[in-house]
């Protein structure tokens, strides 16, 4: 990479940070408990809109993993989840009515909060429908992973998005608040992911899975990106570029080994396809607040009307992280 390109990326990073700084006015604190954050705490950042039904399990899952504090931006929920979040002892929550899209799908908001509160912390950036898995997550807390990453001088940790879906129609089995979403949607595609390298930011571009297979069979290049880097030892000079797909400075995107070895990596189980999805897809059709003019949702709505079955004979049923590691979806790297 030449000096010129490096300089341009630096400018770009500064632009995102200035933008995040300006978007801070969008956010009104509802419950600010950030004074509780101790220097070694693990933080979780998220944006949510009408996710009331998912949040109880979401918080429980990450509390058990060892997250110490949650920082959540509520984008004008109407289902009472804001009040519920505000009443939780380890949650700081901000409210905004502003456009999700104009905050670059929430990235600006979270970049700002991270700039302000996450400096020097390990932080996870996940959506309420994403469950993070890492090697040995059934026997070792998240802190074991971050300590190991610190000892190995690794600053960012990759976790690919793995779409989970139910067997049968998506709206067949209702999801109850507090329930493990994997009870409803335990299936996934094991081996149809394709990878290309993004020369500009140095990250990998992963596509595939059931969304590509069912909704984009004729235009796979439009299928959503599945590469994510949700766990980063944050520094206030860092910035997410688009969702958690890539970061600047670009060294943080080098979460893969180029010389034949495997680095340690995890998986984000994406439990988007619950019964709540159909109504969400319809709402998005009118709201158009998602990426690429909600193109994804247009395709979903069309696809869902015809054939809302994502399950196929070759779908795998989720058992544990070791299964995903054997399938080659994640790796222990040299963590043993």
């Amino acid at each position: 990479m030449g000096v010129w390109q490096s300089y341009r990326l630096r400018l770009q990073r500064r632009r995102w940070r200035i933008r995040a700084f300006r978007k801070r006015r969008n956010l009104a604190p509802v419950a600010n408990r950030t004074d509780q954050i101790r220097p070694s705490d693990l933080l979780l950042f998220s944006t949510a809109r009408n996710e009331g039904v998912r949040l109880p399990y979401f918080l429980k899952y990450y509390r058990e993993m060892g997250v110490n504090h949650f920082l959540i931006v509520d984008n004008d929920s109407t289902d009472g989840s804001l009040d519920w979040l505000a009443s939780q002892p380890d949650v700081s929550v901000w409210h905004t009515r502003h456009s999700y899209k104009r905050a670059r799908f929430g990235v600006d908001w979270l970049n700002w909060l991270q700039m302000k509160y996450a400096h020097g912390h390990w932080c996870l950036v996940v959506d309420p429908d994403e469950l993070f898995l890492y090697p040995f997550c059934d026997t070792r807390p998240l802190r074991a992973l971050t300590d190991w990453l610190d000892a190995s001088s690794i600053k960012s940790f990759s976790a690919m998005l793995l779409d989970m879906y139910p067997k049968g129609r998506i709206d067949e089995e209702p999801y109850r608040a507090g329930q493990d979403p994997l009870e409803v949607a335990p299936w996934f595609d094991a081996g149809n992911y394709t990878i290309t390298r993004n020369p500009r930011f140095g990250n990998l571009w992963i596509q595939g899975g059931p969304r590509s297979r069912v909704f984009f069979p004729e235009a796979p290049e439009k299928a959503p990106a599945l590469n994510k880097i949700p766990l980063v030892k944050w520094d206030r000079r860092y910035a997410y570029v688009s969702s958690t797909h890539m970061l600047l400075p670009r060294g943080l995107n080098l979460v893969y080994d180029e010389w034949g070895g495997e680095k340690a990596s995890g998986v984000l189980l994406h439990t988007k396809f619950l019964d709540t999805f159909t109504s969400k897809a319809e709402e998005e059709l009118t709201r158009r607040e998602h990426y690429g003019a909600s193109k994804e949702y247009v395709a979903y709505a069309a696809g869902l009307k015809e054939n809302p079955q994502l399950w196929c004979k070759w779908s795998e049923r989720y058992i544990n992280w070791r299964q995903l590691e054997i399938l080659g979806l994640m790796s222990k790297g040299n963590w043993a």
């Binding site: 992911y193 979460v255 010389w259 034949g260 070895g261 495997e262 680095k263 080659g328 040299n334």
Partner: peptide, 24 residues
Amino acid sequence: KAVDRRTRGRPGLYMQSRFPNWGW
């Protein structure tokens, strides 16, 4: 085994944390 996985990886696997350069 862990060291081997980190340095040589599983042959024929392309994934989020293993994407070898040409020839590697």
